[in-house]
């Protein structure tokens, strides 16, 4: 039987594991950890952590899973990481704290609306389909430079007010 205080401490360490690509947010901020429980791991009392991957091909997921196992190992607790695909991860699971941290780091957090091509037919002038606020200066006057950015989860934008480029965490 594992000491509940120790388990709680280890769980805290696990949730504090940073995203290797965006180290200002933790995997808990991302909402990747779905469940932490004590479990029998290969015949030893240990912990089972259920995670839901962000993007199918995101290479950071492996680093995160390894770090979670390492957090347990540091206290001599064997950890089993289980991947659960369904329900699929969505940026809605990202914590408010995570969003604030992203913004401070210079990445616009997910808006909750997906970027889409303009609907067919005439597009009314001045109607903005989606507002992405510049994390540097706070202006809403920003434009998309590239839908696909430096990692699977980000798009590249530019602020028309302060002229700075910035990353946007894509809504999925």
């Amino acid at each position: 039987m594992l000491d509940p205080d120790l388990v709680a401490r280890v769980e805290q360490d696990m949730r504090a594991v940073p995203d290797p690509e965006i180290p200002v947010i933790t995997i808990d901020d991302l909402g990747v950890i779905r469940r932490v429980e004590t479990a029998d791991v290969d015949g030893h009392p240990g912990m089972r952590v259920t995670i839901t991957p962000t993007y199918s091909g995101c290479p950071a997921m492996h680093a995160m899973a390894d770090a979670v196992v390492e957090a347990g190992r540091a206290h001599g607790i064997p950890v089993e990481v289980v991947t659960r695909l369904s329900p699929a991860w969505t940026t809605d699971w990202m914590s408010e704290q995570g969003r604030a941290r992203l913004r401070r780091f210079g990445i616009a957090p997910p808006t909750g609306e997906r970027a889409h091509a303009a609907p067919p037919g005439p597009v009314p002038v001045g109607l903005q389909l989606r507002v992405v606020t510049c994390p540097q200066c706070g202006s809403d006057d920003t434009e998309e430079v590239a839908r696909f950015g430096s990692t699977a989860c980000k798009a590249l934008r530019r602020c028309r007010t302060c002229r700075e480029p910035f990353d946007e965490f894509k809504t999925i």
Binding site: L85, S86, A88, T90, H116, F148
Partner: peptide
């Protein structure tokens, strides 16, 4: 096949972006 359904739930959002990119 629950695993296939799970993969699809994830992938459908990704390919939505791919299709949109090609469309543009």
């Amino acid at each position: 096949d629950e695993t296939l359904a799970g993969v699809a739930a994830k992938a459908v959002k990704e390919v939505d972006y791919h299709r949109d990119h090609a469309t543009q």
